[in-house]
Amino acid sequence: MLLIILNIFCAGLHASDLPLTLDYYKSTCPTVLEIVKSEMECAVLSDPRNAALILRLHFHDCFVQGCDGSVLLDDTITLQGEKKAPINFHALKGFRIIDRIKNKLESECPGIVSCADLLTVAARDAVILVGGPYWDVPLGRKDSKTANYDLVSTNLPTANEGLLSIITKFLYQGLSAEDMVALSGAHTIGMARCVNFRGRIYGDFETTATMNPISETYLSKLRSICPAAPATKADNNESALDYVTPNLFDNSYYHILLQGDGLINSDQELYSSVFGLETKQLVQKYAENGIAFFEKFAESMVKMGNIINPDTYVDGEVRKNCRFVNT
């Protein structure tokens, strides 16, 4: 019943019937893909971690008002953006990379390529550049003229959230539990802050983990990075979400969950939650079959990238600067 209600409620957000096409910029900006790819290659070559930053930006954009570039907007006197919402404030970086790409595109094709499309393509290229799968990106999104600070906390999963709540948030976006497990595999790259894994490493880590020598060493390292007593400086200390291959997009994230060593609670819940029969099987599947993970991840990324608010498509714009609406 919950699934039926959520599907009805969010039916307007999934706009697969909107005219997104693979050749949307064929005549207006034929070099768009090459420009984004070139700039992303420079960014990831300078620091592989930049791949995770751009991928995270795309996730956080699409889960609030759809994939509309709203996450990129700065605060102004008349607009409260999403960047300073609690979940986003310390988590989101990479905005200057988007600025550089946008500047290149405006120089080549002024007023043509939306920031929402730019970010969607950049996220795809980010994944490829660290060893992940390729997928075609349908294009033609418009940029929102608004942002929604409050929806950030409502729509985005948190590090300490339970499995059923996370599934509900994905269902609201029109994404299935299988999409959720595959998309969570994005945590094979990227970092988490101490404040987001303190509860886990001083909580049930020893219960879920096999506590072999590797797990024991890992937990000891995490506790040295993140002391039990909250401390302002330590809160921002970071650790890789995938401690085996942190800069490579592969399926080792799922192997870590099988061992019970997931860094944040919301990740380990996929395998260890008593409510996670389906998600546990999917974690096992993707741990055993990296090709299956890549295929489903690519499919789910397209699905997520197609979350569009029809109102934005009708009333949106192509921003000249991704940080501000056009004047």
Score class of each variant (00 low, 15 high):
residue 111 G to P: 02
residue 321 N to H: 14
residue 78 T to K: 07
residue 88 N to E: 07
residue 13 L to G: 09
residue 90 H to A: 15
residue 306 N to D: 10
residue 228 A to K: 14
residue 318 V to N: 03
residue 279 T to Q: 05
residue 301 M to E: 13
residue 48 P to T: 08
residue 324 F to V: 10
residue 193 R to L: 12
residue 61 D to M: 01
residue 321 N to P: 05
residue 30 P to Q: 10
residue 142 K to G: 06
residue 249 F to A: 10
residue 264 I to S: 05
residue 155 N to H: 15
residue 136 D to W: 07
residue 234 A to Q: 12
residue 180 M to G: 01
residue 32 V to Q: 10
residue 7 N to P: 07
residue 75 D to C: 04
residue 193 R to T: 06
residue 43 A to F: 00
residue 144 S to G: 07
residue 69 G to E: 06
residue 169 K to A: 07
residue 262 G to W: 02
residue 52 A to I: 02
residue 205 F to Q: 03
residue 276 G to S: 04
residue 194 C to L: 09
residue 2 L to F: 09
residue 163 L to N: 03
residue 120 T to Q: 12
residue 127 V to E: 03
residue 14 H to I: 14
residue 111 G to F: 06
residue 65 Q to K: 12
residue 8 I to M: 08
residue 23 D to G: 10
residue 245 T to R: 15
residue 237 N to W: 02
residue 86 P to R: 11
residue 243 Y to C: 07
residue 174 G to V: 05
residue 197 F to P: 01
residue 100 R to H: 12
residue 243 Y to L: 11
residue 288 E to P: 05
residue 159 A to I: 06
residue 100 R to M: 09
residue 155 N to K: 14
residue 312 T to P: 05
residue 220 S to V: 10
residue 178 E to Y: 02
residue 211 M to S: 09
residue 14 H to W: 12
residue 315 D to I: 13
residue 190 G to R: 00
residue 106 E to V: 10
residue 311 D to C: 07
residue 294 F to R: 11
residue 114 S to T: 02
residue 135 W to I: 01
residue 45 L to K: 13
residue 26 K to P: 08
residue 286 Y to N: 08
residue 150 D to H: 09
residue 227 P to R: 08
residue 303 K to E: 13
residue 243 Y to M: 12
residue 33 L to A: 14
residue 174 G to R: 05
residue 251 N to H: 09
residue 230 P to K: 11
residue 113 V to W: 01
residue 99 D to Y: 02
residue 81 G to K: 00
residue 37 K to Y: 08
residue 214 I to H: 15
residue 260 G to A: 09
residue 62 C to W: 01
residue 122 A to H: 01
